[in-house]
Simulated scan of single mutants.
Amino acid sequence: MSQQVRGVVARAKGEPVGIETIVIPDPGPGEAVVRIQACGVCHTDLHYREGGINDEFPFLLGHEAAGVVESVGEGVNEVEPGDFVILNWRAVCGQCRACQRGRPWYCFNTHNARQKMTLTDGTELSPALGIGAFAEKTLVAAGQCTKVDPAASPAAAGLLGCGVMAGIGAAINTGAVTRGDSVAVIGCGGVGDAAVVGSRLAGAAKIIAVDIDERKLATAASLGATHTVNSREKDPVEAVRDLTGGFGADVVIEAVGRPETYKQAFYARDLAGTVVLVGVPTPEMKLELPLLDVFGRGGALKSSWYGDCLPSRDFPLLIDLYLQGRLDLDAFVSETIALDGVEDAFARMHKGDVLRSVVVL
């Protein structure tokens, strides 16, 4: 039988979100119902509310989540009821050309639950990133559930579901940061700070955090940045070069998603260095670079989707590092809130007052 739960819904562009009753169907083939324990408030959820992703309102928001599998549908063998899981928004298909070539982290046919969750009047909901976890329970594809050690704090573990994984993966998976590298991270919000942490995990010798907010730079330093640059006060390209012997960083991670900061990243890297774009641009943004510079500087210009992660590989590994005290996921949790605190959390996030607010149920 279907069941009814509370969830945070955005009904129209720019309107405040509200708590509504959500109808969760029984899981069908390949699906799972998960009881949510915690879900981070990510900027992507605000993008949904503002119509910046698409206009498929109403949205059931929330996607950085951890919880316990309650029930599964026919044919599910990845997880079973009682498993503690982190939800992901890229359940790999195993059949596309990327998967068949042994590169499932690039899967071109990721999927979500086939059934729709609805409001009580039958209105179909669009779950944020195919998850919809600002709710007591949600319906997902079973492949969106990654089993991890239940000793982990749900509030911390859930953040691997999006922003923290995106940043760590941008450094380790996409940027291939390794021992002794110099790294610059432009933009020190949640994703940028996670890139700092990922660079430190990978053994980078020098990690330069760049932002316009001294509070964010202080946080980046506490998480492992060896140097900070306030780009309101200094040209970030010159500053990064000055800190790297005049050459530029081996890897520059752009975690803002704007043409201006991308150009800074491009020119702040060493010859044959790597630029990683993990910040999400908006559709109208355009980038113009001299093609001769693109050719002459060599190296690689990469985009990082979800940190090029493979959840089944990366989530358990990172949770193990967390439980060993080698990865401080708790540092990303600025506050815990109830379901009815999401709208206020959006305002605090927009002002830069928090790294992550986390809904705890």
Results as ranks from 00 to 15, higher is better:
Gly18Val: 03
Ala32Arg: 07
His47Met: 13
Asn54Arg: 02
Glu56Thr: 13
His63Thr: 08
Gly67Tyr: 04
Val69Phe: 09
Glu80Pro: 00
Ile86His: 01
Asn88Thr: 03
Trp89Asp: 03
Trp105Gly: 02
Tyr106Leu: 14
Thr118Trp: 01
Leu119Met: 12
Thr120Cys: 08
Gly122Met: 07
Thr123Asp: 10
Ala128Gln: 10
Gly132Ala: 07
Ala133Pro: 01
Ala133Cys: 07
Leu139Cys: 11
Ala142Phe: 07
Lys147Leu: 01
Val148Glu: 00
Pro150Phe: 00
Ser153Tyr: 06
Ala155Glu: 14
Ala157Gln: 07
Leu159Asn: 12
Leu160Gln: 10
Leu160Arg: 09
Gly161Glu: 13
Ile168Trp: 12
Ala171Trp: 13
Asp193Asn: 14
Val196Ala: 06
Val196Thr: 04
Val197Arg: 08
Gly198Ile: 14
Arg200Tyr: 05
Lys206Gln: 12
Lys206Met: 11
Lys206Tyr: 02
Val210Gly: 07
Asp211Lys: 12
Arg215Cys: 02
Leu223Ala: 02
Thr228Ile: 15
Val237Ser: 05
Gly245Asp: 12
Ile253Glu: 05
Val256His: 14
Phe266Trp: 14
Pro281Lys: 03
Thr282Ala: 03
Pro290Gln: 13
Ala300Ile: 02
Leu301Met: 15
Leu301Val: 14
Ser304Gln: 10
Arg326His: 11
Ile337Asn: 15
Met349Lys: 06
Asp353Leu: 11
